[in-house]
Design a protein around this nucleic acid. Sequence first.
DNA 1: TTGTATGCGTTATCAG
DNA 2: CTGATAACGCATACAA
Lengths: 338, 338
Amino acid sequence: MRDVARRAGVSVKTVSNVVNDFPHVSTATKSRVLAAISELGYRMNFSARNLSLGRTGMITLAVPEMRLPYFAELSDEVIVAAAERGYTVLVERTGGLRERELEVLTSDRRRMTDGLIFSPLGLRPADAHRLEVDYPLVLLGERSLHGSVHHVAMGNVAGARAVTEHLLERGRRRVAVIGSYDARGAGAGSLRTQGFTEALAEAGIEHDPRRTGEAIEWTRATGAEAMRRVLDRGIGVDAVYGLNDVLALGAMRVLFERGLRVPEDVAVAGFDDIEEGRFSCPSLTTVQPGRTEIARTAVWLLVDRIARGEPAVAGGRELVVGPQIITRESTGGAVESA
Amino acid sequence: MRDVARRAGVSVKTVSNVVNDFPHVSTATKSRVLAAISELGYRMNFSARNLSLGRTGMITLAVPEMRLPYFAELSDEVIVAAAERGYTVLVERTGGLRERELEVLTSDRRRMTDGLIFSPLGLRPADAHRLEVDYPLVLLGERSLHGSVHHVAMGNVAGARAVTEHLLERGRRRVAVIGSYDARGAGAGSLRTQGFTEALAEAGIEHDPRRTGEAIEWTRATGAEAMRRVLDRGIGVDAVYGLNDVLALGAMRVLFERGLRVPEDVAVAGFDDIEEGRFSCPSLTTVQPGRTEIARTAVWLLVDRIARGEPAVAGGRELVVGPQIITRESTGGAVESA
DNA sequence: TTGTATGCGTTATCAG
DNA sequence: CTGATAACGCATACAA
């Protein structure tokens, strides 16, 4: 930049003004500077700018794994939303492990960016105080672990309720649930289980715990295993609710292997509305949690907080995005959209 | 850091030495400095370090879209491999658009990181010279667009050949191909088409172009559309080769809708070995391109080049990772592993 | 082994 | 509207 200044016969400050498109620059000097810039092939040094500005124009997105379709699709949305606001996204992979999640919150690497959008999975309620960080933070995806942190939640309970009710309306009474009870009590698992339980209770149905297939990780493989365990107990099942779509798809795979027809013998529903479920055979009834809105809202909240330089621990807002049930072939096709 | 130095009664330099774990520091002063650091809650400023060092410890990964399972799984692997080498990954989303891809190569944002791992999709051979950049660059996934750039390729032709031969060995003769011919000639599409064509030719079979379903984008939806077009031409089809797995799964969905059984009526195979194909109904025969090895190799090549500060345009190496065919239910189950 | 001085490339301040 | 100069926080000679 100094070279450019010399070549254009102006000061460094003026070059900076031109580069940053500041208002008070005469057209003449501006074009002279621009000429010098292109002649010298000058490119700005971001590290220097970051140091001077105290900001980096990057935000961190911390998710369990990219290979989980929900997080892949979410990341896409976050990256797009961030780009709209002029931010680039640094991805941290936690594997859903509590250790790694705590590490991300305090790591040095995190400090390279202006803020964090964090989708915790392994964190327990007892870890809530660890979320009182001194940088902009927005939590994603489940119930607030800590009231003072911005948080964009999905309607886990409502969605789970609605989809369970849908199964019951289809005349199913022996509904298996695939996933984890998540005894920690704050995660999506327990909330979705809660919605499921509530719907059953309301219909006067008692859930037989033998129809619960637990799964710590939420993958197709663990969903399949959980489904096998339930079926192997020899208890009748006429519907399966997967706590998310990949679990449901894993379960569906096992039903296929055992020669059970979906939805004739067993209806299947999931949660997340990943694209895969629109093309599975049969296509999967699910809950659309409002992923796009969640991502956009999270980015906006974070960028706002960054812009106004607020301390992160001040008045966190909890925004809940409404879920929408999408009925497809796996429960017998469209009936209603609640 | 100055505060820490003052508090510990040493110089800034000494603090820096401690933080960076330099050898020649006495244990006494070291512990005194560490104490001061924790008392003051000091954290290093990365922007400053980056400015001084001229490196950032970040690399950029440019992919079309995260929601495409292949790239989601690839990203996961790259992130893990980068972490092993102490690097963090910044994700750029190109959408597979040529414009965006060219932009990524020269953008200011790119300059925030030490190097680029780039999976081009829209770039044409004519754009090859645009790859002569002055920073460490590693290309991913297809044939070399430019000889002087490091490049990790998969065995597209060999894999496509093998999987087509597998279909032919199963007695199929009317094989449809779903995807794009990619007339630009350098992309995975044309290479995989080439392998397909070669295998047919070797078996003395002439490919009827009416059995080609083109698709610019490679998604489940475009795969389904392409399959529909082929079937609607009324020409017989006893096998389908999707140029990648999501295309094949989209095609399989259409076969399902039309009441065609897989593999009895129509055998189906894909390319990529995404996890989804292991759990689809039926499970999908495919080509495992060596994703993990590709990601690891790319990261190592890039980090090496960064470490030794070589100009990017010097002697690019092309490494080809061998593909492996994986036979599953969609072609009638395991027969051989080539 | 540790301190001092200087540079990294930008932005901000405050004159002019 | 523009220029000189001081931060920004750390690393790296080189000196002690």
